[in-house]
Design a binder for these strands. Structure first.
Length: 565
RNA sequence: GCACUCGUAGCUCAGUGGAUAGAGCAAUCGCCUCCUAAGCGAUAGGUCGGAAGUUCAAGUCUUCUCGGGUGCGCCA
């Protein structure tokens, strides 16, 4: 296989002494406008060391390396050295590599031998799995897949919210208003109902809050009744959650949540005391982080019980001891940025150098068009309802457009759920957005169904190909539409690597759309099933390559690639 | 008040310091006797919130400023 960027960097490294090979490789880019060529090297940085104008340097370089066989043209334009590949060789190199590597095309061994932990989803037991949870769940799952694809040894952790005062609240509410049979019939909405009821009642009767805290303390101390109720809530919730995870295609290696770490906290608190990092303040224990530009971090409450931050410290320490991670990623909303800065700083102050391997991959808020999502106020949209609606609508569309499709129900799930997931992963993490069902259910343009449709189209053509023993004539694939598709195909590994580096699945989602657009143009402009066998073989090979890469890309953003739709 | 974050076409958003800022939706106009029209093409739409600075080069970096969001001790 030939990596064109690497080849260019090699050629240039011989001629440019003032830069390392890696520096050169980093500068090699794709020109915005393809008329400029397929690859470009900007010469501006060389101007100072060579004390010459960039365009002169580009000019001189172009003369020195003109004779290479991979490129039809190497030309100096306005300080850039532009490389135009030999389109026929390019087509052959890229397509043959894809057909050879198949589902491995785009992968690498970048992360070989490196352990990466990714914590995501982390839903709260006994609370709704709502639209606000889809971001962490899908960004995390996609990163999980991307890291695996790049050879990392991954551990996917669902840090369940299965502990804390909220369970005290729930126990109080259950004892006051709960009905076991009603709740078992439909756990989450019923538990939500009494949870909301609790907050309404607590506004008029603040004593309920104290009672709730009491019950949580009982739970921590192993009270039999408290544990029984807590287990009941947890089992019922997990059953529902697993149904949603299955629909989404999300899997975890561990469900070790907050309760798992409850007995691991005293040790951390003790260490903090020994290292003299904590001090008393208003009856509580804090770590003063003001010298580091952060607000104080609460370690224990005045009643001695634990807090979220203490738990995360214990969890991080446990994970380092257990997995010896090279990277420990948390996919958690940006609202908790300060929290992560605080505890990661505390890990540093404790003297552990792995603090720098702990990474908070944050993301913006999801709101509803009617306002913020809030479990306490009962203002929620259940994720499962959205998924079901999407599937339902997809089925309607199938019945309208392709009523004879086999496995309609399955395909409707793959497309409907895919649409919801894709929309989620299509924009950059950091922006807030308002969830709109209408937008989610629109399947035209830059959407999951568009990419899936393109894939199905490619599959459909391939099914119609008769056995063809002819050798492809790659010169057929030198028209602009074909070349554009091949150019996009060649970038797949770069894209995946960039997505992993920035913890941004949307890079891959965008790529999938770009490839689909390119292919649809090619499909429109070129007849594939033509009489001339070697022309057909060439175009079919391109269709095969596109099908493979679309499928690989879809998989990385957690979408299925149905062959018909 | 302090900190963080977002601000790009009517709307939703791309845009690893590099060449003429790009898509989708919506609008207008085209393309199914032809491999899936969930598709393709064309037109129109921009002082990249504002100001100053750094740089050969700024939508991208720095400072200030305006507007939205989030966070700031006993929830998680």
């Amino acid at each position: 296989m030939i990596n064109y960027k690497v080849e260019i960097a090699k050629i240039l490294a011989d001629k440019i002494e003032s830069m390392t090979y890696d520096e050169i490789l980093n500068l090699v880019e794709h020109p915005k406008n393809t008329e400029m060529g397929d690859y470009a090297f900007p010469c501006f940085k060389l101007a100072k060391t060579y004390r010459k104008a960039p365009n002169v340097i580009a000019e001189e370089l172009s003369l020195e390396i003109q004779d290479d066989t991979l490129f039809d043209n190497i030309e100096a334009v306005a300080g850039f050295l532009n490389f135009t590949v030999n389109a026929e060789n390019f087509a052959q190199n890229i397509i043959e590599e894809i057909l050879d590597k198949k589902e491995k095309y785009g992968s690498s061994e970048l992360g070989k031998g490196k352990k990466t932990i990714i914590e995501y989803s982390s839903v709260n037991i006994a609370k709704p799995f709502h639209m606000g949870h889809i971001r962490s769940t899908m960004i995390g799952e996609s990163l999980h897949r991307i890291y695996k694809f790049l050879g990392y040894d991954t551990v996917a952790i669902n840090h369940l919210g299965d502990y804390g005062t909220q369970f005290g609240k729930l126990i109080v509410a259950y004892k006051l208003w709960g009905n076991k049979e009603v709740i078992e019939a439909d756990p989450i909405p019923e538990l939500l109902k009494i949870y909301v009821q609790f907050h309404q009642a607590a506004e008029e009767n603040p004593a309920l809050e104290d009672e709730a805290r009491n019950w949580f303390t009982k739970l921590e101390n192993g009270d039999a009744e408290a544990i029984e109720l807590w287990t009941l809530f947890k089992d019922m919730s997990l059953k529902v959650f697993n149904r949603v995870y299955e629909k989404l295609g999300v899997t975890f290696d561990s469900y070790a949540g907050e309760s798992f770490y409850s007995d691991k906290m005293p040790e951390i608190v003790q260490m903090l005391r020994e290292k003299k990092l904590v001090q008393k303040s208003e009856g509580a224990e804090i770590v003063d982080l003001e010298p580091h530009g952060l607000t104080p971090a609460l370690i224990t409450k005045k009643d001695g019980s634990s807090l979220y931050l203490t738990r995360d410290l214990a969890a991080a320490k446990y994970r380092k001891d257990t997995y010896n991670f090279d990277k420990n990623i948390y996919v958690v909303g940006s609202a908790q940025k300060l929290h992560f800065q605080q505890w990661i700083k505390i890990v540093e102050l404790m003297g552990y150098d792995w603090y720098k391997d702990c990474i908070h991959v944050d993301f913006g808020m999801v709101s509803l068009e009617e306002g913020a999502l809030s479990t306490r106020k009962g203002n929620v949209v259940f994720l499962e309802d959205v998924l079901d609606k999407a599937v339902e609508q997809t089925l309607e569309i199938i019945n309208e457009k392709n009523p004879n499709l086999p496995d309609k129900a399955l395909v409707a799930k793959q497309i409907g759920i895919g649409a919801v997931i894709f929309q989620e992963l299509y924009t950059s993490r950091t922006k807030d957005y308002a969830f709109s069902l209408e937008k989610t259910l629109s399947f035209e343009g830059e959407t999951g169904p568009y990419v899936q449709y393109t894939h199905a189209r490619a599959c459909s053509v391939l099914k119609k190909v008769d056995v063809n023993e002819s050798h492809p004539v790659y010169a057929v694939l030198t028209d602009e539409a074909s070349k554009d598709v091949i150019r996009t195909l060649s970038k797949f590994n770069e894209i995946v690597t960039l997505a992993h580096k920035n913890y941004e699945p949307h890079t891959v989602a965008r790529y999938a759309v770009e490839l689909a657009q390119g292919f649809n143009r090619f499909y429109h402009d070129n007849a594939i099933l033509v009489e001339n066998a070697s022309i057909q073989a060439a175009r079919v090979s391109l269709v095969k390559a596109v099908k493979i890469v679309l499928e690989n890309a879809l998989h990385l953003v957690c979408l299925e690639a149905p062959e018909q739709m």
